[in-house]
């Protein structure tokens, strides 16, 4: 019998009526036990009235749709993810490295990207860091690699052949190789390519030329619940 079903409400309502009738019957009777039977009868009727009213309200508002809900059982586990180490984590010897990921040739850059790590990258192995993706000027020598404290800074030098579509694999490759966040990347560059890269990313993944102070914090893996559409 469900908590919000009509049968349970009918049952308690019937029990209330029956209890009321019983109290009416025993009221003038009972002999020496009369005070006790009356008090008990009144209390039982009152409790049943409250119970029935509560069930009606709960059916309408659906506060507790099931017995499980009433017991505080949500039937769902919160998942504590673990932050996966980057493929390059055990090879990083300095705060600056030349990054040669798989599929680099398809990006058609003037030279491999330069990655600058925050000073505490190696001391915080369970943490993912925010990302600054800097587009250096096309063709020329470009600006020197940037360094942003508390962020992994990736400086790339696109050529005329570099496309936003080709670069769309960059976030996945970087997440594979280093511990970085997947949201709130700061993309720096005046070229249309930088704007096109941002547009090509999922909503919230990258922002064009936001202040460095707006970068999210470096955090360990969050607690998560199943997303919509996941079988429970």
């Amino acid at each position: 019998m469900t908590l919000t079903g009509v049968p349970l409400i009918l049952l308690t309502a019937s029990a209330t009526a029956a209890a009321g009738a019983a109290v009416g019957w025993v009221w003038p009777r009972g002999g020496r036990l009369q005070p006790f039977t009356r008090v008990a009868g009144v209390l039982v009727v009152e409790a049943l009235v409250v119970l029935t009213a509560g069930l009606v309200v709960n059916r309408h508002e659906q506060f507790y749709p099931s017995w499980q809900a009433l017991q505080g059982d949500t039937g769902t586990a919160t998942v504590a993810d673990r932050r996966h180490a980057g493929l390059l984590d055990d090879r990083v010897r300095s705060d600056r490295l030349t990054w040669r990921p798989q599929g680099l040739a398809a990006w058609r850059l003037a030279r491999p990207p330069t990655v600058t790590l925050p000073p505490d990258y190696r001391e915080r192995p369970g943490v993912a860091f925010p990302v600054v993706l800097a587009f250096a000027g096309p063709g020329g020598p470009g600006a020197p690699p940037r360094r942003t404290p508390e962020a992994v800074t990736v400086t790339i030098a696109p050529t005329a052949g570099t496309t936003a579509a080709a670069l769309s694999s960059l976030p996945d490759r970087l997440s594979h190789d280093l511990r970085v966040t997947t949201a709130g990347w700061d993309v720096v560059g005046r070229q249309p390519l930088a704007a096109a890269f941002v547009t090509g990313q999922p909503a919230g993944a990258a922002v064009l030329d936001q202040p460095v102070t707006a970068l999210p914090p470096a955090l360990t893996a969050p607690l998560r619940l199943p997303p919509a559409g996941t079988p429970s």
Binding site: E61, D73, T78, A183, L225, P226
Partner: peptide, 26 residues
């Protein structure tokens, strides 16, 4: 787009504190 959406569903628990206690940390 440009709204960035994340969803989270607990199996049951109704409209109750138990559900919100489970949701608040995530």
């Amino acid at each position: 787009r440009p709204v960035s959406l994340t969803t989270a569903v607990v199996a049951h628990g109704g409209h109750s504190s138990a559900v919100w206690r489970q949701m608040e940390a995530p």
